[in-house]
Every structure is written in structure tokens, then in C-alpha cells.
Design a protein around this nucleic acid. Structure first.
Lengths: 177, 177
DNA sequence: AGCAACTACTTGAACGTTCAAGTCATTCCC
DNA sequence: GGGAATGACTTGAACGTTCAAGTAGTTGCT
């Protein structure tokens, strides 16, 4: 593409923007794949299942309702339901009817918690190897801020939720630090 | 998680690192989904198929061998083969035996090029709406540089390839301005 | 009390990706 | 010049995600 598009009134990206865009697209393609690969290889689960386990593990009684968990892991209810079925068949989580309505609670079992504690260090190590340790602290901070800004358009609700749980004071409103 | 991990000798992330990591992970999860959604809705294709079309469109004779195209779109040969079958069944690309060996060329048809020219502006608009226009120029540049640095670990070959085709001079070697 | 609307979840089929073969021409070697 | 190895794909099954129902409690209206 680049020039041959007959882009009436669409402003194409200038070289600097295009440069940044290409690398960003490449990263958002490659990074999830790399993280998934590590989890799959070392633990036999994917990133979404990992998020479920983590979400449950730091929740009171290691339990959450499906709908809240779906938000926490940022996936659809359907996707979550299938994933919970898989995890339950391995005995890592269990379903239990909750008090009201059709609501269901998912609980991280002792087995599940034990496995997560084995898995987590390796995943953190990978996060360091691929991202945290290859960037200078200020570069990492800038990356985080840019990611947050982008997310504010892509999924505003999620930013609100994250800001609430993580450093509600420190992480300002628009331009932390 | 956060504390309850019995992480012998694994250095956990400090609050600032964790903050950046959370937003980064959320972004690399949400951004591809958002881009895919726009393409699916407006054009009935996914990001990978779009990359194929773009790759072919600015290639001599709108043609590339499968293996080269797989590199350009950064996917496996198998994935590409399936995707090309889908695109071919819509008449957007065509397969042709190339000179040597079992090699196959894929060519963007006139129909395919026409469709791409209709599709591209909308995609650029989305890129602007979600990323390029919500960040200040220096923030975007920093994001691009960070992405490139991360990619250097995740898939070094790809960085080399991208640097070669895009702004070989301007995009220095380690810390482009 | 009866019925619609809503919320919370599950399920099955369709679709795209991955993974493990399978095919077929070419090249290298004895 | 036959046979193994290599390169360039294709194909089919398995798996996870999405999408469109389906199920089942709860609430609100009349």
C-alpha cells in the first residue's frame, strides 16, 4: 500500500507515525504469543486461564462470581464458562451455586493454588526477560502510560477498574508522575 | 497473587513495574481485538488476511512466494496456506506455480486490490482513533521505540527485517531519536 | 396469580489457528 | 544413477474462541 491508496480525505500516517505504528502492531502480535508459549510449555495453560487463576487467588475465599471474574480476566462470559470447564476438569477450580439467582461462584481449589504458586515465578521471569528488564525504568513507565492512554479509548471501563484496584492515588487521572 | 507466592529467589515486580506491566498486558490483549473487530465488521477479514493483502499490494507485480509472504505477514506457512485458500475462494488472490521446485506464487487480483483500496482508509482511521491521534508525537515515538526494544528479544529477526524496509537510515540501530 | 423482561450462566456449532503428518520436486552424495 | 535429505508447500484433526441459542431463576407490571 503506502501510496497507491486513492485516499480521498483520509490522512495517511507520516513516516514517523508509520514507523511507530509498525513496531507497535508487531509487538501486540508477538508479545501475547510469546507469553502464551511460555505458559503453555511450562504449565499447559494459556494466558486467559492464567488470568483466571490469578484473579481468583487474590480474591476473598479464592472465590468469585462468574460475571465478576469475566470482568477481571477481561473475556466474555462464554469464553470464561468454557475455560472454567477445562480448569475444573483438571481439578484446579470448582463451581458452586451462589446465593442469589442463577449466579455461580468459582473457587480456586488447594490443588489450583498450589499449581499457580509453581507457575507464577516462571511467568514473572518471562515478563522480566521480554519486557521489564530490557527497558530502562523511565522507558517502562512511559510504555505503561501510553498503554493506559490507548486503553482509555479501546476499553474505558477496564482502565477505571484497573486504576481502582492498583495504586488509586499514585496512578493519577491522566498523566501520572 | 502478589504476595502469597513462595517465590524463592524470584524477584517480583515492584509497584511501578507492576503498574506498567498490567496496562501493557491489557493493551496487547485489547488492541488486536479492537483492530480485528473493525476489519471484520467493515471488510469481513481479520488482521492476518489484511497483512497478506497489504504485503502483496506493495510487492512487484502484486506477487510473492508463499514463504516470503509468510515472513512478511509474520505467520506460519500453514496459517498462511489456510488464509490464502479463504482469500482465493473470494477471488481476492490467486495461486500460481512459480518457476522452481514446489514453490508457489500468490498474486493479488484486480478485485483484491480494489477491495483493499476500499478497506485501507477505514483501517488507518481506526489506527488513528485508537492510537496515533490519542498520543502526543513524542509519546507515540517513545511507544514505538519501546515496542522495537521489546521485539528485539521476542523476535529479533523481525526487527531486522522491519528496520531494513522502513527508514533504514532514520531508524538508527539502538536508540533512534 | 400470570406473564413479560431481565440477569446470569451454559451449550453446541462454526470458524480460525496450530500441530503433526503427508506430498512432491530438487539437490546432494556414494 | 539410485536413494536420502531438504525445501516448499498442503491437508486434516484438535483445540480454543466466538456467536447464536437455550435454560433458569428473579423482578416488575397488571
Amino acid at each position: 500500500m503506502a501510496d497507491e491508496v486513492h485516499a480521498d480525505e483520509v490522512s495517511w500516517l507520516d513516516p514517523d507515525q508509520l514507523w511507530a505504528w509498525m513496531y507497535l502492531v508487531a509487538m501486540v502480535e508477538a508479545l501475547p504469543a510469546a507469553l502464551d508459549a511460555q505458559l503453555k510449555r511450562d504449565a499447559g495453560i494459556n494466558r486467559f486461564e492464567y488470568m483466571i487463576l490469578v484473579g481468583l487467588s487474590d480474591s476473598p475465599d479464592r472465590t468469585m462470581a462468574m460475571s465478576r471474574l469475566a470482568l477481571a480476566a477481561s473475556g466474555s462470559l462464554s469464553r470464561l464458562s468454557h475455560a472454567v470447564s477445562r480448569l475444573a476438569s483438571r481439578g484446579w477450580v470448582e463451581r458452586r451455586a451462589a446465593g442469589t439467582g442463577r449466579q455461580m461462584d468459582v473457587r480456586l481449589t488447594d490443588t489450583g493454588l498450589a499449581r499457580l504458586q509453581e507457575i507464577a515465578p516462571g511467568h514473572v521471569r518471562e515478563a522480566r526477560r521480554l519486557v521489564v528488564d530490557v527497558l530502562a525504568p523511565d522507558e517502562l513507565a512511559a510504555l505503561g502510560r501510553a498503554a493506559r492512554t490507548v486503553l482509555q479509548t479501546v476499553s474505558p471501563g477496564f482502565v477505571a477498574a484497573l486504576d481502582e484496584t492498583h495504586a488509586p492515588g499514585a496512578a493519577g487521572d491522566d498523566a501520572p508522575t
